[in-house]
């Protein structure tokens, strides 16, 4: 069987894994998004304990490898009778990890909005909460898109680490196939190619989104 026949042969199974990879990415980036915003707001506007918790969380998750975080969730927790499926542990691990990074991107975006706008909103009688919802976040979410795109691609790539806790995603499918036909290198070449294509498609798509929602004069300073 030459390389192309092999590719044709294994592609269906790999694409099945790709779907899992995409699901894993989508779920964990969403989890990270919600948590990330909460952490960023907590760090910026929260009272002392909340702010300290947020920055501690961010520091810890950014300072330790994803692999170890996944192992803690998947191998560590069962010691205390908390058993997660590898898919759930994967989402949780990737999501909690991504939240820390996303929080920093959101914080940067929020801080790039002038304090004057917060004051102006308060001056027309908006509450703090309304100001954050109507003035700060709509701007921050636009400003953050370029760095957020990076984070999405990063998560897509790092979802491969979930293979190490046996989540049935693209990497795992590759390994599974290769263990049967012993053509490791070629199989992973195809796997690499699929990731490459996925990353290119996602980054193109995000560029389009960025252009769509662009507002004159609203970019990250610097």
């Amino acid at each position: 069987m030459n390389f192309f026949e092999l590719t044709y042969d294994i592609l269906p199974a790999l694409l099945k894994g790709t779907v899992v990879t995409l699901e894993l990415t989508a779920c964990s980036i969403s989890l990270g998004f919600v948590l990330g915003i909460a952490l960023a707001l907590g760090r910026l506007y929260g009272n002392r304990p909340i702010s300290a918790f947020s920055s501690g969380y961010i520091q810890f998750f950014r300072g330790t490898p994803l692999l170890v975080q996944l192992f803690i969730l998947y191998y560590g927790l069962p010691r205390y009778d908390i058993r997660l499926s590898s898919f759930v542990a994967g989402i949780l691990g990737l999501g909690l990890n991504s939240a820390a990074y996303q929080a920093e991107y959101f914080r940067g975006a929020i801080q790039s909005i002038s304090r004057g706008q917060m004051m102006a909103a308060r001056a027309i009688g908006m509450s703090r909460f309304k100001t954050i919802m109507n003035i700060i976040l709509p701007q921050a979410l636009r400003i953050v898109i370029p760095s957020w795109s990076n984070e999405l691609i990063y998560t897509l790539k790092y979802s491969s680490v979930a293979y190490m806790i046996a989540a049935p995603e693209l990497m795992a499918q590759g390994k599974f196939i290769a263990a049967e036909n012993f053509r490791y290198f070629e199989v992973f070449l195809v796997v690499a190619f699929i990731y490459l294509v996925a990353v290119l498609i996602v980054s193109r798509a995000l560029n389009v989104v960025e252009k769509r929602v662009r507002i004159p004069g609203l970019q990250m300073a610097q």
Binding site: S114, Q117, M119, A120, A123, I124, I135, Q139, I215, L218
Partner: peptide, 13 residues
């Protein structure tokens, strides 16, 4: 009470 600021503080978005 309307307030007008030195640097306008219009909402950029």
């Amino acid at each position: 009470i309307g307030m007008v600021f030195q640097d306008f503080n219009l909402f950029s978005h």
